[in-house]
């Protein structure tokens, strides 16, 4: 039997195509590890908590509640959203929280695996994949809640809802892609994570999460440029059965994300040894 030969050296002139192939191969072979890590984290997350599942959606729920009160009491006047406002704002904040968690996931998971990274050689892509598994599992609870609201407020179900799962995976995919690029730097400096979360906090108001795109003005331009706008808008409208505006932009963003995602994988793969060297636990 021919033994596999491994070479480690500084001159890393491996072609990008080769790196990508190795990366995709590692994702494929590390399915069991990824699943195991995801199960481990989900189990321990619930075993050590009374409220368990509630923590998954408490933040978006409270944000939504604040806005419902603000709008009900007339403190802020919002344009008509086409569906009952509570459904609009709940779906917005829940989808937004899925997106922000997806963006943070690669960094959070890689950071949590610090000890392992500096001691054991395992396919690092498993961390990304297990992050996706965990996101899906956490989001299912949120989506169930959302479906409940749809019924409660009499929005009902439309055929377009069958496309919703794809749009939902799209959110996780795009979020993870962004996460792949910020995690290496975020591993070096804590600041990165804080800046990202601060930025996302602002960005939410330039995305149709809480209110619809205004008729004119600066915010309209900003929201129409924001690539996250079609992402949230289309996903929500598939669920509520509203008209699918910005469909073209949606496809550009999602398809354009594929090469960027692959590039992100290569970037992640190159950067891990450099990060491990700087954080030796």
């Amino acid at each position: 039997m021919e033994l596999k030969t491994t070479v480690y050296q500084k001159e890393n002139n491996t072609k990008i195509g080769k790196l990508l192939k190795n990366s995709l191969n590692d994702i494929f072979t590390s399915r069991f590890l990824a699943k195991q890590l995801a199960i481990r984290d989900i189990k321990s997350q619930y075993r050590q908590s009374f409220l368990g599942i509630i923590w998954a959606f408490i933040t978006p729920l409270t944000t939504a509640l604040v806005w419902i009160i603000l709008s009900k009491t007339g403190t802020v006047t919002l344009t008509d959203t086409g569906i009952p406002y509570p459904v609009y704002v709940f779906s917005g904040t829940l989808l937004w929280s899925i997106l922000t968690e997806s963006i943070n996931a690669p960094m959070v998971n890689t950071n949590a695996a610090r000890g392992m990274l500096s001691k054991i050689n395992f396919p690092k892509e498993a961390l990304i994949l297990s992050g996706v598994y965990k996101l899906i599992s956490n989001s299912l609870v949120k989506i169930a809640l959302l479906l409940f609201f749809l019924l409660l407020y009499g929005v009902g179900f439309h055929f377009s809802i069958f496309l919703f799962p794809f749009a939902f995976l799209g959110i996780i995919f795009i979020g993870t892609t962004i996460g792949l690029f910020i995690s290496p730097l975020g591993m070096l400096y804590n600041d990165i994570g804080k800046i990202v979360n601060l930025g996302l906090g602002f960005l939410m108001y330039a995305t149709p999460v809480i209110y619809v795109i205004p008729k004119d003005g600066f915010l309209k331009t900003a929201m129409e440029i924001n690539p996250l706008t079609p992402l949230i808008l289309i996903t929500r409208n598939l669920m509520t059965g509203q008209s699918l505006d910005y469909l073209m932009y949606y496809f550009i963003v999602s398809i354009g994300c594929i090469p960027i995602f692959l590039l992100g994988l290569v970037f992640y793969r190159i950067s891990i040894p450099i990060i491990v060297e700087r954080m030796s636990a």
Binding site: V7, Q9, K10, N121
Partner: peptide, 14 residues
């Protein structure tokens, strides 16, 4: 073990 890359030299493992 391939956890960090060398700055000089080379490791070959079969």
């Amino acid at each position: 073990n391939g956890l960090i890359n060398p700055d000089q030299g080379k490791v070959t493992i079969k």
